[in-house]
């Protein structure tokens, strides 16, 4: 693995280039959905926006905080593996996974709450967009947690060290992206 970086024509590892390319397509996916939301939000006369209290902004703010924290721990995990500190690495990856799971728990509480308040997938256009956008994001969070679990398990088996952590870095990029998507979704769905 460590020799691979030198072998590629660009000097960037396959994993890193691959994940960036993948993220470009992800940006277009979320970009398509978000612009659909923006277009209908500004163009449709029938997009009733629920009052802010109903949306539960404080809880969602806390959730944003949880996810951003998990991004920070991801950065720390990568820093740890770069100096071969396996213990810190495992702890921070664990915390990142924990942050993701916390996010999911709060999200499921929110879904349940909103559904009973009458904001459902088919209740009106806003509900449709709310569940579609956040639902797709939740799928990405779940994917990220699985990926991090894989990184944790392989890491504990000694797959990475200071010279060989391409996959940790790639997983980190993905996790930051998932985080970033939420940072965009949060204001456009809850605050505006």
């Amino acid at each position: 693995m460590s020799t691979q970086v030198a072998e590629t024509s660009t000097g960037i590892s396959h994993a890193k280039l691959g994940i960036w390319t993948f993220l470009a397509s992800e940006i277009m996916l979320f970009g398509g959905l978000v612009s659909a939301y923006v277009i209908l939000r500004s163009g449709s006369a029938h997009m009733a926006i629920p009052p802010r209290e109903m949306m539960g902004v404080p809880l969602a703010t806390f959730n944003t905080f949880a996810l951003i924290t998990s991004s920070v721990t991801m950065v720390l995990a990568l820093a740890a593996i770069k100096v071969n500190d396996m213990k810190r690495f495992a702890r921070f990856i664990g915390m990142t996974i924990g942050g993701g799971i916390l996010f999911l728990c709060i999200k499921s509480y929110e879904y349940n709450h909103k559904w009973h308040e009458g904001i459902t997938l088919s209740s009106n256009l806003f509900g449709s967009f709310y569940y579609t956008l956040t639902g797709l994001h939740v799928i990405h969070v779940i994917g990220g947690i699985l990926l991090l679990l894989y990184i944790l398990v392989t890491g504990l088996n000694g797959a990475y060290d200071a010279h060989n952590h391409e996959r940790v870095e790639a997983a980190g990029l993905y996790w930051h992206f998932v985080d970033l998507v939420w940072v965009i979704l949060f204001p456009i769905l809850y605050l505006l």
Binding site: S25, G32, L33, L121, S122
Partner: peptide
């Protein structure tokens, strides 16, 4: 392609989940 994927997803939801995109 991801943009069509988004579009197809919305169409699918309109068909099966009662949304009205």
């Amino acid at each position: 392609f991801p943009v069509l994927e988004a579009g197809a997803l919305l169409q699918l939801l309109d068909r099966v989940a009662g949304t009205s995109f």
